[in-house]
Write a protein that binds this DNA or RNA. Structure first.
Lengths: 325, 325
DNA sequence: CTGTTAGCGCCTTCAT
DNA sequence: ATGAAGGCGCTAACAG
């Protein structure tokens, strides 16, 4: 590996001069600059990033933590981050947590290790106090609402999203409404459930626990929900579903059982997966790519601004009506 | 930031001793090891990764280049890589090329910069000679077949996959067969077209250019294909489609136009996107997650083995029959 | 078993 | 405009 030192020797200058031309610093004689550059080209020299990282205390790497990468929601966020990061010449270190809290903590540790200049958390498992502590090493941005004022966030208001769905269904005349969500006790699920309950409350209806489904993560889970619905004596007339792929799966299986959508069961999704389009699922889009874009901008601003101000950006949901309601 | 040197001073030992306990090296007195560890814990010390990287000439980072991250095929590969990488404590640097050759070359450069210990290319745009040159800096593995014997690869034989589809349709009695692929002149597309032509040739049929569609990448593209098919005087009776999301889109739009699947048009997909399941698309699964897993194993083996042997693994396609044929 | 020392490759202040 | 020299923080011979 050719080093800056060898270049210097061959060009009959000091390493600092070489470093200067490498970094386009001013105060270098035009002639020497050309000479040095010639040798650099001739030797096909490339700087060693690790040395630069160590010396500068900066890596131009942004970490991204997420449960799993093979998931439309998270890869949309990733896409948004990637687009913005490319503009600033930042590289992406993608880290899967598999929803394992310990694993997430390991990722947070990488902030202290200087493996990355900051971290965007697409979901989070550790408590706020812990994040706050790690954020003293490098900026953290969450793509979920967080209860730590000192950590920037960009988020969908999932209460709002679910509430919007509920109000939309209610306005369409539904009173027998069920829901279907993912992780039972996550931050978002809690808010969604609250929106569900308060939505029903607004028309004086008590929730029916036969119509609520939790831990629905996969297409198969959706299928099972549909099968359970089919067996019910008393079915809901509408279902609010957190994810479109689940909604699609439910629609498919329920129709296969001869139940009409939306006549006998209206289904509304709450995200922006393209599968919602193919299955004609009415949905409250959450524009996840936007989430990623904003998240990177927040990180970058934080990094380049003197002030340590934190921001919390709420992305607005958007109703997209299709034939499932 | 606390350094190894400070620890050494406080523990009244040399930096090497500290380094030894840090790295669990043998030949350290139990007592001193405990003493040093105590100080490490007390100061809540974490090593600086960049210093380690520089010193060792190794980063424990594997680069991954792909056109875009928000795509089922590529995120499945990514998932496979992630799973294997986690086992060996390797981190993922995910780099989007956006199908830009220059961008891909920048990523290859990172191999020289020592930003990563190797690169898995999920698709490739640069020619083999170029890859070969970069592979002298660090191991490269492609997730496509490549014509460079010195670079390991793991791949689906896309000729075989398409040929399998053709033979399946032919055996079902079809002779009027069309196809629908992505990038017109990519490595894979070339082989797919060849399989198509040779498949037809085997039953003495000449291809009809009205039935071939190229540059189909998005769901919208699939919709357009369906619309064009509807307008045709003479329609094919079967369609081989490279991707399930396109196949799904075609099925949806063509059925919306009153054309029966599979009676009037049989559709077969050629990958393993889950959307194929939801739309009941018969498909030749390519098991992309397996691709990623093997790719990482190949990289890792290459890195840890003395011999510089390269391997080429062909992953076998698998027919999954559903209702679209 | 432990310490000394010379790197790893580059950046950056301080002189000149 | 240029050079000398001291880091950045850690590893790994080599010498005891």
């Amino acid at each position: 590996m050719t080093t800056i030192r060898q270049i210097a020797k061959l060009a009959n200058v000091s390493v600092s001069t070489v470093s200067r031309v490498l970094n386009n610093h001013p105060y270098v004689n035009e002639q020497t600059r050309n000479d040095v550059q010639a040798i650099i080209d001739q030797l096909n020299y490339t700087p060693n990033s690790n040395a630069i990282h160590l010396s500068k205390g900066k890596t131009n790497v942004i970490g991204i933590s997420l449960p799993l990468v093979n998931n439309q929601y998270y890869s949309s966020i990733l896409e948004g981050i990637a687009k913005e990061a490319a503009k600033e010449n930042y590289h992406l270190m993608v880290c899967q947590t598999n929803n394992d809290k310990k694993k997430e903590e390991e990722i947070l540790q990488m902030l202290r290790n200087k493996k990355m200049d900051g971290l965007i958390m697409c979901s989070k498992l550790n408590e706020g106090s812990s994040l706050e502590m790690f954020s003293t090493y490098a900026p953290i941005v969450t793509c979920e609402a967080n209860d730590v004022p000192s950590i920037s966030s960009v988020y969908m208001n999932h209460y709002e999203t679910f509430r919007m769905s509920m109000d939309y269904l209610i306005q369409k005349g539904h009173t027998k409404i069920g829901y279907c969500i993912g992780r039972k006790n996550s931050f978002n699920s809690t808010h969604r459930k609250q929106a569900y309950i308060e939505g029903l409350h607004s028309i004086g209806v008590t929730p029916n626990t036969n119509w609520t489904f939790e831990e629905c993560l996969t297409i198969d889970d959706g299928k099972h929900v549909a099968q359970q619905l089919v067996q019910l004596d008393q079915r809901p007339t509408a279902l609010v579903v957190s994810c479109n792929h689940i909604a699609a799966s439910i629609r498919k299986e329920i129709e296969r059982n001869g139940i009409q959508v939306p006549e006998q069961l209206a289904i509304i999704g709450c995200d922006d997966q393209p599968i919602g389009d193919l299955f004609d699922i009415t949905t409250i889009s959450s524009q996840s790519e936007q989430l990623g874009k904003h998240a990177f901008r927040l990180f970058f601003k934080r990094l380049t601004t003197e002030q340590q101000l934190n921001e919390h950006i709420e992305v607005s949901p958007q109703l997209i009506e299709r034939t499932s309601t």
